[in-house]
């Protein structure tokens, strides 16, 4: 491969520009004591400030006005910045479904979308599924049918399961299996997951 092509010219150029310009801003604004420190820390803080983008979004019914670096995925925003760790990271490549959340009611892998793309959107995570202390019928059904063991894929499975029923993709066992195949469960609880989804669906409660 041609080495020139692999160098991310654009991003590094932008980064350098930001660092240079931030140094200039620092020079103009900073009191002399900090300037003397003349160090990377100041540069870092200012670089960080310039690299962030304002985003307004709604998570579990709560409005958030955030300032986010454009490269932050929705998954990392939830887990690392908002400490909503119910949404799980299993692969970071959209291959396992552990990070499934609802964006405007549709299931999405949170690792495959950048947080800055979600401006104005309504996001529901596993933490927002229950009605206070009252579990969502799908959560109840997963407990009743033991649709999990280690519990790590479970939030993603449940978010996916709720969407699966709403999409009309839970009309038969085979349907459920097909449309739940984007959520890997390495403990292998698929038999119980199918039972849980069927039960929640026929339970008649609003999903």
């Amino acid at each position: 491969m041609d080495k020139k092509v692999t160098t991310p010219i654009h991003s590094s150029a932008r980064r350098n520009f930001l660092k240079q310009s931030s140094a200039m801003v620092a020079l103009a604004l900073a009191p002399p004591t900090i300037l003397k420190a003349g160090d990377k820390k100041v540069e870092d803080q200012i670089a960080g400030y310039f690299e962030k983008v304002p985003v307004k979004l709604e998570i579990n019914g709560k409005a958030h006005a955030l300032s986010i670096e454009p490269r932050v995925t929705l998954l990392d925003l939830l887990r690392e910045q908002l400490h909503l760790t119910g949404t799980k990271k299993g692969c970071d490549h959209g291959q396992c479904g552990a990070c499934t959340v609802h964006i405007n009611g549709k299931r999405v892998n949170a690792c495959l979308t950048l947080a800055v793309m979600q401006g104005g959107n309504k996001i529901t995570t596993i933490e927002g599924l229950a009605n206070g202390d009252e579990l969502h019928p799908m959560q109840e059904a997963f407990i009743k049918h033991d649709g999990f063991q280690c519990g790590y894929c479970t939030p993603g499975q449940i978010m996916s399961a709720v969407a699966c029923v709403k999409e009309g993709h839970a009309e038969s066992d085979d349907d459920i299996r097909e449309y739940m195949s984007g959520n890997i469960c390495r403990c292998g609880c698929y038999t119980n997951i199918v039972d849980a989804i069927k039960d929640a669906k026929k339970g008649g409660k609003s999903l």
Binding site: T85, T125, L129, F142, I143, F148, G151, I158
Partner: peptide
């Protein structure tokens, strides 16, 4: 009996080592 930690796992409240 149902899993005693079931509610923590289905609500996302169960904490794993990176959380």
């Amino acid at each position: 009996i149902d899993r005693v930690d079931g509610k923590l796992k289905v609500t996302g409240a169960a904490k794993y080592s990176a959380e």
